[in-house]
Amino acid sequence: MATSTNGPQGLSKCVTLVSSDGFEFVVLREAACKSGAIKRMLDPKSNFAESTTGRCVFEEINGIILEKVAEYFCYSYKNRNTEQVPDMEIPPELCLELLMAADYLDGEYEYCQLSGHLLTDY
């Protein structure tokens, strides 16, 4: 991924998500902003450290979960304009932790979906 390419307002097009165990995931800024928390974190107006560096470190989310989250960002971004999209594959053992991550990252819709998964799977 070309992290150096810049978006419209002089912002980098991509951002890096870093897990507690040091895994890094580079995703499109627009895709990552699906999460309310990440969106505010990167808001150039507020000028927090993350918005200048483009690196978001999540000290409470491990690599496996963050990978799934990143995957979800891409999946959701890719299908943003299409309807009737097949569900994303989510292993049942990750559900609970993903649910927590969704709550933390403020993904309302994802939270609901995961709760659904959780209820059907258990």
């Binding site: 505010r40 974190m41 927090f48 450290a49 993350e50 200048t52 000290e59 409470e60």
Partner: peptide, 15 residues
């Protein structure tokens, strides 16, 4: 003088 602050850290604290 917020540019040194990590949003994630603060967010996590309030969380």
């Amino acid at each position: 003088n917020a540019s040194q602050l990590s949003f994630e850290q603060l967010y996590r604290a309030s969380y």
